[in-house]
């Protein structure tokens, strides 16, 4: 009996034959990284491989001189008897599914992904496989994303309503990926400047350098002291909500852009004035479609909310199990 191609250890999803680990959460020599979010890309690994467009994000997170090697989408690398390639996941800039092949056996690790169009990154590419390791962040049938263009329109309309009332509009959003997706989406409606919290500003530069078209942005630190943000749209990470930084924007209307805003209880509990349903993760139909597209006969689900998905897949005759990983715990969404 051969060893499984990938196996869950206390460090991550490990490939014994290729001697590498995908998205490890403890120190390993060779790390394959799906994308630059904090719960997937951590410090302290000996060497990193990631999809080429994701390199600047990883360097920003891990340090300018960290041992990161970019691999173009679709290009194959050999690790012992195992071939590895990166394929667009449509989650954020440089996000990838990792395809691992040994002989004619193929496993795909999706990392985080979505199926909706996103002008800031390459679209998700279905990859046929025998075993699919999928994320399951929004794995309930209540999560069916509205058209993202409609959501962008709602965000713009809210900003304009605030402007008409001479109030600041402070939109809380994850600093990496979601913020830039909104900045790109707003470009269809306006070319007005949007103001950025420092945590978002640096990452947005990386997206501009990658050639993503967005509305003009300026860091809030360059806003004149007397300016209270009336009529402006300001983007900030959720951690800034209620902080001293946020107090400056007196009378602001607050918004939050996240897939969790789909549920009324969460929306009301979080206490933002507006909730925009916008996610960089797959919704329920997206997860099912991806399993189907892959043709996998076995599915392993990460990110915790797996019970409904596993039951549904088992009902379709697919072997489905949960993988206990810490993904999604520290991440944005």
């Amino acid at each position: 009996m051969t060893t499984p191609l990938l196996t869950l250890t206390d460090r991550g999803l490990h490939c014994p034959d290729g001697d590498f680990t995908i998205d490890p959460w403890r120190k390993v020599d060779r790390a394959i990284i799906t994308h630059g979010h904090g719960d997937h890309a951590r410090n302290g690994m000996g060497h990193y491989w990631t999809a080429a467009p994701g390199v600047p994000i990883l360097r920003k997170r891990l340090g300018q001189y960290s041992p990161v090697e970019g691999v173009p989408y679709g290009e194959r690398r050999t690790f012992g008897a195992v071939t590895v390639s990166f394929h667009p996941a449509g989650h954020i800039l440089g996000s990838a599914q990792v395809r691992v092949q040994r002989g004619d056996e193929v496993w795909v690790v999706t990392g985080d992904f979505k199926r909706e169009a996103d002008p800031t990154c390459a679209p998700f590419e279905p990859v046929p496989c025998d075993v699919l390791v999928t994320e399951a962040t929004f794995a309930y049938p209540i999560y069916q994303w509205p058209n993202p263009d409609t959501v962008m329109e709602e965000i713009y309309a809210w900003w304009q309503r605030c402007a008409a009332e001479d109030r600041p509009a402070v939109l809380y959003t994850y600093a990496l990926g979601k913020a830039q997706r909104i900045l790109a989406g707003l470009h269809a409606f306006t070319n007005e400047t949007v103001w950025l919290h420092g945590a978002i500003d640096g990452l947005t530069r990386i997206y501009r350098d990658a050639g993503v078209t967005m509305v003009p942005t300026v860091p809030v630190s360059e806003m004149p002291r007397s300016d209270r943000g009336a009529g402006r749209l300001i983007l900030a990470p959720p951690s800034a909500a209620g902080s001293k930084w946020a107090k400056r924007f007196r009378g602001a209307s607050t918004g939050f852009a996240s897939g969790w805003m789909q549920v009324r209880g969460t929306r009301r509990r979080k206490g933002y004035d507006e909730g925009f349903v916008l996610s960089d993760h797959a919704d329920w139909p997206g997860l099912l479609r991806t399993v189907e597209d892959s043709g996998a006969q076995r599915v392993l689900a990460t990110h915790g909310h797996t019970d409904a998905l596993l039951a549904h897949l088992q009902g379709l005759g697919i072997e489905a199990q949960a993988l206990a990983t810490p993904y999604g715990e520290t991440e944005a969404e």
Binding site: P141, V263, G265, H305, A308
Partner: peptide, 18 residues
Amino acid sequence: LSDTVLEATYAHVGDLAE
């Protein structure tokens, strides 16, 4: 959708009408 899936979903949302 099966009972199991709907049960799990209902438990996640916590409100049947929703």
